[in-house]
């Protein structure tokens, strides 16, 4: 017991070391930005359709696999990398739209358990299809040369690709803000999240809006997967891990809220980064405890609205 206390104390002294703190902060933020890419779509879809899409992790995984194939089979280097991001997003846009039209559309009025089961069934189908199309091996994808290696920043050296992730995350957040506040599609999405009755009054084609939102959410996940491919081990089971983190984020931030998804992602990223420092074996437990506490005291999350 004493040794455990000693160890924990030792870990805590790391918090006094500025280099460690800066590095963990950067690492938490970059991890958070990846989480944001997947949870933003999950949250958008929930906000508009009220469906908790368990298959969202599968869409993310598909994006990673597509990117891996593009880089490995089609084109290497920086152009290949850019192409892989575009392909990941574009392909998942189609997959998402297709899934909505074929399956999701039929269950908007069903009970929660049916909605949950349907997306749950998709988790297994996508997981196995990935194994059939590719295989069961875990692979790594190389980042383009420009973005590999390390960069020195405010006194610490940090992997360049992770800094790149932070920049892309910020760019996507800004783009989403513009989409939601400056375009008609975005205003419809926000209206649907707040009050679905209102949409009918506005004369919006809700069928197309729902398809659009699902496709957009899937494209975000696909883009995120493609972007994450160089920092993850791309392999089966990836979707199962990723979706859990995204759930935690969305619950904490508030289901349906994009700012919530951003703050939740950064929070979970940072809690993980520093939790690992303080209690190496309990960091995961910490995030679920955080999720439970939020649900108990504020079920609609930090940025959501009570129903």
């Amino acid at each position: 017991m004493e040794s455990l206390l000693d160890q924990t104390w030792q870990n805590f002294t790391l918090f006094g070391n500025p280099t460690v703190v800066i590095r963990q902060t950067l690492s938490g933020i970059s991890h958070g930005m990846l989480l944001f890419l997947i949870s933003a779509g999950l949250s958008l879809i929930f906000g508009v359709t009220r469906i908790l899409n368990f298959a969202h992790g599968g869409l993310f995984m598909l994006g990673a696999y597509v990117a891996m194939s593009v880089i490995g089979l089609v084109l290497g280097g920086l152009p290949g990398f850019v192409l892989s991001l575009i392909a990941g997003a574009a392909l998942l846009l189609l997959v998402g739209g297709g899934l909505e039209i074929l399956l999701l559309r039929r269950i908007y009025r069903s009970a929660h358990e049916f909605q949950l089961l349907l997306t749950f069934g998709l988790v297994f189908v996508i997981g196995d299809l990935v194994m059939i199309i590719w295989d069961r091996e875990e692979r790594s994808v190389a980042a383009p040369e420009l973005l590999s290696g390390a960069t020195r920043l405010i006194g610490v050296t940090f992997p360049t690709y992770r800094l790149f992730l932070i920049l892309v995350g910020i760019a996507v957040a800004v783009a989403l803000w513009v989409l939601l506040h400056r375009t008609r599609f975005g205003i419809w999405i926000r209206a649907a999240t707040l009050d679905r009755e209102m949409l009918g009054a506005l004369g919006v084609n809700t069928r197309r809006l729902y398809t659009g939102v699902f496709a957009l959410g899937a494209a975000l996940a696909g883009f995120g997967g493609a972007l994450a491919a160089p920092v993850l081990a791309v392999g089966p089971g990836l979707h199962v891990e990723v979706i859990i983190d995204a759930f935690v984020v969305v619950v904490i931030g508030g289901m349906g809220s994009i700012p919530g998804a951003l703050v939740g992602s950064l929070l979970v990223g940072l809690v993980n980064a520093f939790g690992i420092l303080a209690f190496p074996s309990l960091a995961v437990v910490l995030t679920f405890a955080l999720m439970a506490v939020i649900l108990i005291v504020r079920p609609w999350g930090l940025f959501g609205r009570p129903e």
Binding site: L103, R106, I107, S110, F114, L117, L118, F120, G121, L122, V123, F124, V125, I126, G127, D128, L129, M131, I132
Partner: peptide
Amino acid sequence: EYWPLFMGTIIIALVLLLP
């Protein structure tokens, strides 16, 4: 070895066809 694929398909069919 693809039981999950079958299970997923069964679940989806169940929800859509035999609620």
